[in-house]
C-alpha cells in the first residue's frame, strides 16, 4: 500500500500492466500468424488469450481487494466514474465507425454504383444488396434460397424479441440497483440473475439468427456490403453483450459476498452503465439494420 500521506489512493508498483501489455501482444501476434497460416499461430493466440484472462483475473482481484479494504475515498470514486464514462464514449465512437460505414454505403456508395452503367451494366442497387457482382436479394425471411441469392432476417421475428429481451434487462438491472440502494440483498441478487439470464437468452437467439442466416438464407459475412455491415455491427454488439453479461455475473457473485454498500458500489454502477450502453446500441441496430 502506498505511503502517500494524502488521501488519494496511489497504488504501489504493480506487475499487471506489464503482464497486460505482453499478453495482448502475444494474443494479437498469434492471431496475425494464425490467419496467415504461419507457424504455431493458433497456439500462440491461445496462450495469449489465457494470459489475458489470467491478467484480468489478477488485476481485478487486486482492485477488488483494495476496494473492499476501504482504500478508495470519494475522490478516487469520482475518478473511476469519469474513467468509465469516457471509456463508454470511446466505445460509442468505435460503433460510430461501423454505423458510418453502413450509412455511407447505403446512401452514397450503392446509389453511385447504380449510376456506373459503363462498368456495372444493369445493376439496380437498392438495399439490401450484395453489390453488382454479389448475390441477388430475394426478400426477407425467405427460406432455402438458391445459389447467388440471399434472404435477410425480418425485423419482427427474432430481432424484435431480442429488443424486448434487452430492454427488459435494462429495467431489471435498474431494479437491482434500487434493491442495492435499499440494502435488500435477496432482491438484488434475484434481479441481477434475471438480467444475466436475459442477456444469455439474447445471445442464444442471436446465435440462432446467425445459424439461420448461414444455413438457410445464404447470408454470410461475404454477402457483399449488406453481409459485411450486418455481421460486423451485430457481431461487435453481440461481443459486447457477452462481455457485459460476464461482468454482471461477476458483480452478482460479489453482491452475494456482500461486497457493496448501499451508498458505495461503483463497480455495480459501472457494469450497469455498460449494460445500458449495450442496450442503446442495440436500439440503434434494430432501427437502422433491421427495420430500415
Amino acid at each position: 500500500m502506498s505511503s502517500a500521506p494524502g488521501s488519494y489512493y496511489l497504488p504501489n508498483p504493480s506487475p499487471w500492466p506489464l503482464i497486460a501489455a505482453v499478453s495482448v501482444f502475444t494474443l494479437v501476434t498469434g492471431v496475425a500468424l494464425w490467419i496467415n497460416n504461419v507457424g504455431a499461430g493458433f497456439t500462440i493466440a491461445m496462450v495469449g488469450l489465457a494470459a489475458v484472462l489470467f491478467m484480468m483475473f489478477g488485476w481485478w482481484r487486486a482492485v477488488i481487494n483494495e476496494s473492499v479494504g476501504g482504500n478508495y475515498n470519494s475522490e478516487v470514486d469520482l475518478s473511476f466514474r469519469m474513467t468509465m464514462g469516457w471509456f463508454i464514449f470511446s466505445e460509442v465512437m468505435f460503433f460510430c465507425a461501423f454505423f458510418g460505414a453502413l450509412f455511407y454505403a447505403r446512401n452514397l456508395a450503392v446509389p453511385w454504383l447504380e449510376e456506373e452503367m459503363l462498368l456495372w451494366g444493369s445493376y439496380t442497387g437498392g438495399w439490401p444488396t450484395a453489390g453488382p457482382a454479389g448475390a441477388a436479394h430475394i426478400g426477407a425471411d425467405v427460406h432455402d434460397v438458391g445459389r447467388g441469392q440471399f434472404g435477410t432476417i425480418g425485423a419482427f421475428g427474432i430481432p424484435i424479441l431480442n429488443t424486448i429481451l434487452l430492454m427488459t434487462s435494462s429495467i431489471t438491472v435498474t431494479l437491482a440497483h434500487h434493491a442495492l440502494r435499499h440494502g435488500d440483498r435477496g432482491k438484488l441478487v434475484l434481479w441481477l440473475a434475471i438480467t444475466v439470464a436475459l442477456g444469455a437468452a439474447f445471445m442464444y437467439y442471436q446465435v440462432e439468427e446467425y445459424i439461420e442466416a448461414y444455413s438457410h438464407l445464404g447470408l454470410t459475412l461475404g454477402t457483399g456490403i449488406y453481409g459485411a455491415t450486418f455481421f460486423m455491427l451485430t457481431g461487435f454488439h453481440g461481443m459486447h453483450v457477452t462481455i457485459g453479461a460476464i461482468i454482471l455475473f461477476i458483480i452478482m457473485l460479489r453482491c452475494m459476498r456482500g461486497h457493496f454498500k448501499a451508498e458505495d458500489h461503483f463497480a455495480f454502477e459501472a457494469a450497469a452503465w455498460y449494460w445500458h450502453f449495450v442496450d442503446v446500441v442495440w436500439v440503434g441496430l434494430f432501427i437502422f439494420v433491421y427495420i430500415m
Binding site: P132, L221, T229
Partner: peptide, 12 residues
C-alpha cells in the same frame, strides 16, 4: 471476405 471497400460487393 467482407466487402467494405470492394465495389463488386457494393462497397467503396
Amino acid at each position: 471476405g467482407t466487402a467494405f471497400f470492394d465495389p463488386a460487393g457494393g462497397g467503396d
